[in-house]
């Protein structure tokens, strides 16, 4: 997910994104990622640790890997857009600081961005202040000149 701006998105592209969001959201719900109690149980190593969400990550990585290999082979994404994976860069301080803040927030509430949006869609009350904070956080550090 690079910060690329989408100009003149075509209908198939939009439909593809909508479908992808829907599938991703359903997956998060079925896997239990959108249940903060389960996420916090996964993060609670010293308590009654529930390691099952690690499987979600492992299988997610495996499926994504297959998709990436297909995309590299065909040069197109499933919705027909040109496929390009960005090149690898070394980790920098910004990445590490951002990840640390992200981890603090994730551990504090048990919500990361995707599940937070799903929970808002479900009308889950605690997701509202969380999503508000998230939007403010994303907006405060928005890329200069990046329109959305």
């Amino acid at each position: 997910m690079s910060g690329a701006t989408h100009r003149g998105s075509t209908l198939p592209t939009l439909a593809g994104a909508l479908l992808a969001g829907l599938i991703f959201g359903i997956g998060l719900i079925l896997a239990g990622m959108s249940n903060p109690a389960k996420v916090l149980a996964f993060l609670d190593l010293a308590g009654d640790w529930d390691p099952s969400l690690a499987l979600v990550m492992v299988s997610g990585i495996a499926v994504t890997r297959v998709g990436l290999l297909i995309g590299r082979h065909t040069g197109r994404s499933a919705s027909g857009e040109p496929f390009h994976a960005s090149s690898h860069r070394p980790a920098d301080r910004r990445l590490l600081a951002g990840s640390a803040l992200f981890g603090l927030g994730w551990g504090l509430a048990g919500f990361c961005p995707g599940p937070a949006v799903v929970a808002v869609g479900a009308g889950y009350l605690p997701a509202l202040p969380l999503a508000a904070g998230m939007l403010i956080g994303l907006w405060v550090r928005r890329p200069a000149g990046g329109a959305h």
Binding site: L95, G98, F102, G103, L104, C112, M134, G137, W139
Partner: peptide, 9 residues
Amino acid sequence: LVGVGTRLA
């Protein structure tokens, strides 16, 4: 924290 962290990272 999640919002700022996601953006930075």
